[in-house]
Write a protein that binds this DNA or RNA. Sequence first.
DNA 1: GCCGTTTTCGGCCCGACTGTTTTCAGTCG
Length: 582
Amino acid sequence: MSRSNDAVAGMLREYSELLAIAGGPAFKVRAYEKAARAVAGHPDDVTGLSGKELRGIPNVGDHLARKILEFLDTGSVTELVELRSRVPEGLRTLLTVPGLGPKRAHQVYEQLGITSIDGLLQALHEHRLQDLRGWGAKTEDNLAASLGEAHSAGERVQLGFALDLAEELLTRISAWPQVRRAAYAGSLRRMRDTIGDIDLLVAAGEAEPVMSGVVELPHVARVLAHGPTKTSVVTSTGVQVDVRVVQPDVWGAALLYFTGSKQHNIEVRELAVRAGLKLSEYGLFDVETGVLVAAETEEEVYARLGLPWIPPTLREGAGEVAAALGGRLPQLVRIGDVRGDLHTHTDLTDGVATLEQMVAAAKARGYEYYAVTDHAPLLYMQRMTREKALAQRKRIRELERTSGMSLLHGTELNVQPDGSLDWDEEFLSTFDIVVASVHSQFRQPRAEMTARVLRAIEHPCVHVIGHPTARVIGTRRPVDLDFDAVFRAAARTGTALEINAFPERLDLDGDLVRRARHLGVRFAVSTDAHAVPHLDFMRYGVATAQRGWAAPGDVVNTYPLDELRRFLAKPLVTAGERTFTP
DNA sequence: GCCGTTTTCGGCCCGACTGTTTTCAGTCG
């Protein structure tokens, strides 16, 4: 994703939020927010675009085009700087607390002088908030709960953010003359859904120039440590980056060591000890003679220990070493196995790209098929209607003839609190693919939530349950579900569970995928794209599937189209099996 | 501030939920 689009979108979003807190007109707040979304989702890099071209982006008009140009030109916007001076800096971070919007942020600032999350916690502790107009004990309780969650997320950043940053840093570092190889390691290479700090490994004959280069990188805000082979810095975005330099001939041993996980390394080193060997980041050595046995590649090191190469996404010390010893490692699904995306949106609902743009981008990715699944009427804000859906279907059928790619017309339904869905069964049966997701009432007790999701799974027209836990990383915890019951029902009815590839979601996560897989569940790895660049999130979804030990056969969108269609026919559901009737 | 006109003004995603009120404000999706 192009960085300048993200930077511009960030500027517009900040403007929108500051305006909201300052009590600016709501329509203006929304205008900035909409423009931010459009710019972030715009497929072309905005750098170098003319004012006229910028105005071609939806929701960007004269004023915003000028602000964007000023921003790209000077790195700043006069009016934004002025606005910042009127709103204390910390107030904006208060908006990240679920349940606290611009009005209440403004209120706690005006009446209690609170400008930070710490200040809010303090006031909460002293029960000073419930004296405010419109506040009560319950409001305080809810706020305390969401603050607790935000805090428990700690300083970790999302996978997508970390990977973008790591790749940008690696591009720079790899260009230095001393550098032979450079790669990210650690939890990022294992593709965990959140990343504590970024570990970069560099192979270079000479370490010193690399270490000095790292502290000079423009991203660096603070240097934590700066030694001959290891440097730790904090970036201006607050992420810690550890860079380690090794000799090129021990690359494999070092990469293995720095990729971890700790538990995986312990298990591998135990194997070494039992074989009279010693494993460190400098190589695999014979204990008696001290002779180096293997170090150059990971494959060599693993092989000398009697192991096949173990994919990083499996290295969690969760049975992968034993499986590797026994020849039982799964054949993992890979990005190249994916033949299509089964959950995407267009600007007919809340996407920012047109149907034509999304289809063209999917075609450019080389997909064999592509599903468009815009929202359904019960997500009221999207104002979907049967007529709009049918009109879209007509355009999809036309587009299919010219695009040379199979297009599936689908929809994303809303699973209501009682498990009922948008539209009737007769109309639903006319869609090629139906995704059903929970979008509201996330705090239902387990029994109700489970019954709700089970009813959707049992519905004969529902093919995929979208983002099954509805979590938003760092913001909203997963819903409370009896997963075994859900997984068994999904397996029995032939309903796929989604592995939503959006970096904020990654839902199901790797652990749940693994559990579900054991019960025979199949998965749809989908991006939930709302813009062209979001189609690239597929790699996060595939990595999450890998973390759940999923093979291509477990993932329905690796199937050729005819096989996918057989799956979507949901042959496993018969009327007699249904425990709920819609 | 943007957009689409019944084009240069007047609308702007719209309904549910929560917790507070005692008829509604704030937040969310």
